[in-house]
Amino acid sequence: MAGLEVRGLTKNFGGLVVSEDIDFDLRPGDRKALIGPNGAGKSTFANLVTGILEPSSGTIHFDGRDIGRLGEARRVKLGIAKTFQVTTLFPKLTVRENLRLPVLERENRGFRMLRRADGDPKVEAEVEALMAQFDLSKLADRQVANLAYGQQRLVELALTLALKPRVLILDEPAAGVPSGETHLITDAIANLPANLAVLVIEHDMDLVFKVAQSIVVLVQGRILTEGTPREIAADAKVRELYLGGGHG
């Protein structure tokens, strides 16, 4: 079956169960959101799927293939990419270099030693196009460390898309972004390729309701419920446990 299929996924850190018996599907074209209170295990779930963490038990299949034991880099090559809750970029490299690297890696050129990194017009054209798409062209030669946080968020999104992923996991893409700039992120997510499978982890309910067709609620490592935004908004348990908890 196409897409991600997670069954019985469990992770414990010592005695602490952070993910418990999670079943989860993500198909091409899906727009799902994962919500839940702080410490519910949302980032941990994302890290299990992308291979940053190893599960304690359970299986992860991608396009029918068992990827549960593959390393992170291998899963990226298969098309599973993620942005981090705390922006993770190459701070001292320029915006252009930050975007050039994933394109080169995607094309498996990372071990080339005798050609110039900026020597391939096709790669450069792709980098330029990405910068134009996210309105970053004017910042091309600035170090990303010197950009505003909202702009860094966009660079990370662009960088991740440069991998041409088939599954994209965004861990709180709007966290730390000034509210006036959140629409940049929301628009960018709305404009993602239609057949991409997208999972957004987010506390910002406006953003969640704007982009998600389906919402999964995670509480203390377990899936509480899954439904359309309307169903979730009307769900009494969710209101009580999460939306009423001072987050909304």
Binding site: I52, E97, E105, G110
Partner: peptide, 20 residues
């Protein structure tokens, strides 16, 4: 080269490098 740029990338952020 791409290799050299990748080394700077690893120096800056091994996590990000792995994630690409």
């Amino acid at each position: 080269s791409p290799f050299g740029l990748g080394l700077r990338g690893i120096h800056e952020s091994p996590d990000r490098m792995m994630a690409i």
